[in-house]
């Protein structure tokens, strides 16, 4: 660019760049989008919503840290992770929308709470709100990214070419998220008495939500060869968590299960009380101006 006219680039033609990127490109442009023969399309859409909502709602939570992180470098890192997850959410909602005849924005902004399929771990407040602090934020990131990384590494074998491509693209991102969380877990576990105490409390905060991550849902059961059975991930994820906690000098919390409502939880659209507020904030502008273009 020349530096004489600040408006030159408004007229296009100049290929300027983001420092960090928006995390969403046409990465899937060459991928075959036909549905595999014999697949239950409604189940496929529901499955894409599950994985997409996990990423969308968790990204919404993580971006609350923007301008509030303990250090500038961490502000950038958390925003980066939120952007990666938002990118994954957009690809997954778009895939669900191909079955449902809806756009990613219609699915994100016009569904009601009971139609969201994300796990509770994605929606709870782990800080910077009153529900947690930086340690609880790291504890959630460690658990979520370890679980999702294990899930995506198996999803690479999916019979659905789009899910397969999304998994391949997401793996590198999730490996970075898990590494980032593991490094902070060790730093905080080992750092000072206060950070050790907070990190242990952070683990206690998120641990009850672990069980839901490994419960097989009927949608997953109906999609043999397309979906990953989350029950098959448990030992791998447990191994990762054990290794990180041991390096950090932290104690694995006792396994407790967050209560369900008549056996139902996030995957069935039954959420925690915080979910309504999260959606109210996320959706209000889009819903306030029907017919608007953004």
């Amino acid at each position: 660019m020349s530096f004489d006219n600040a408006y030159e680039s408004l007229l296009g033609g100049e290929d300027a760049h983001w420092a960090f990127g928006t995390g969403f490109s046409e990465a899937l442009s060459g991928v075959n989008r036909e549905f595999p023969a014999g697949v239950d399309k409604d189940a496929l859409a529901a499955y894409c919503l599950m994985l997409g909502d996990d990423a969308l709602i968790y990204s919404q939570r993580l971006s609350e840290w923007c301008s509030r992180a303990p250090e500038l470098e961490e502000d950038i890192a958390l925003a980066n992770i939120a952007l990666d997850l938002l990118g994954q959410a957009r690809m997954l909602l778009t895939r669900a929308g191909e079955v449902l005849g809806r756009t990613e924005d219609e699915l994100a902004y016009l569904r009601d709470e009971r139609e969201f399929r994300n796990v509770h771990l994605a929606e709870i407040d782990c800080g910077p709100g009153p529900g947690g602090d930086f340690a609880a934020t790291i504890a959630r990131l460690l658990v979520f990214s370890s679980w999702r990384l294990a899930l995506f590494s198996r999803l690479r074998g999916s019979a659905d070419p789009v899910l397969k491509a999304i998994a391949e693209k997401g793996l590198k991102e999730l490996a970075y998220h898990r590494d980032h969380a593991a490094q902070w877990t060790v730093r905080l576990g080992d750092g000072t008495d206060e950070s050790h105490r907070r990190m242990q409390a952070g683990l206690e905060r998120v641990w009850p939500f672990l069980d839901e991550l490994f419960a097989t849902h009927q949608v997953e059961a109906a999609l043999q060869g397309v979906a990953v059975d989350p029950a098959s991930l448990r030992s791998e994820v447990d191994g990762v968590l054990e290794a990180v906690l041991s390096a950090a000098g932290l104690t694995r919390p006792r396994d407790t299960k967050a209560a369900r409502v008549a056996g139902r939880a996030g995957r069935d659209g039954v959420h925690t009380e915080t979910m309504g507020y999260l959606l109210a904030e996320m959706q209000h502008l889009h819903r306030s101006l029907p017919g608007a273009v953004w």
Binding site: W18, G21, T22, L56, S63, L86, L93, A292, W294
Partner: peptide, 11 residues
């Protein structure tokens, strides 16, 4: 108000 705008703004 859209996921694309959210990504752009966050970036």
């Amino acid at each position: 108000p859209s996921l694309r705008r959210k990504a752009i703004l966050l970036a």
